[in-house]
Amino acid sequence: MSRLTLLEIYEHPIAQKYVHRSGLAHAISTAYYAYQFALEYNVNPDLAVKAAFLHDMGHYTWYVNGEWDYDLYKENDIHPIKGAERAHKLLIRLGEDRVRAKEIALAVLFHTDSFLPESPITRTPLQEVVALADEADEEPDGKHHYRYISPERARKKIADLDRKIERTLNHFYDESAGAP
């Protein structure tokens, strides 16, 4: 079975709709951070990058009188719940392995604790990598969601990240098989 690529995910209309809504530049940047953290923490980079790319696809818009209301958003936010559901459904639709799709969806769910009243989260290594990647790209007052990236540059960066993952996974499988 061939690996579902990040570019295949990006090109799907559901990803186009929800990833653009929450900030394509932020999604790509967070995916790059997740790749680096995955290598550092010995986590599968394919899962980490997919979860990081999709982590905010559950965002709602919270506007009052045409202005973004960050406080209202923080008070009523449940985007990780909706995002996990959307990510899981999208990944299954695209043919991702069901176990992997669930791991990715749970990493989307636990990338933040903003939806929890007070309890701290105990995260798996994959979930921690995605949370760290998101934190690494954050800007005050949610401004990271409004950075611009052209469609051409976005495709180039996503394809580049797919190549990095492929090389990393090939290297891992070569080493585990005992190949030089």
Rank of each mutant, 00 (worst) to 15 (best):
V130K: 07
L132A: 08
I28R: 00
L47T: 06
I165G: 01
D113K: 03
D137K: 03
A179H: 01
E152A: 11
E75Y: 08
R147I: 04
N76F: 10
Y63H: 10
H79G: 02
D162P: 15
D77A: 09
L161V: 14
S176V: 15
A179Y: 06
S114G: 13
H55A: 11
R163H: 15
P180L: 12
E96Q: 13
A136S: 12
S29M: 07
H145W: 00
Y70C: 04
Y32C: 13
E75P: 01
E166I: 10
Y148L: 12
T61H: 07
A27E: 00
P45K: 09
H26N: 12
T5D: 09
R147P: 01
A136F: 02
D113A: 01
E67P: 02
K102R: 14
H55D: 13
R155S: 11
V64I: 08
H20N: 12
E118M: 11
H111M: 01
I14V: 15
S176G: 10
P45S: 14
K82F: 12
D160M: 10
F53P: 10
G83N: 09
A87Q: 12
Y173K: 07
Y10A: 15
L116A: 02
H88T: 05
N76P: 06
S150G: 14
F110C: 00
P151G: 11
Y32I: 14
K156N: 14
L47Y: 04
T124Y: 00
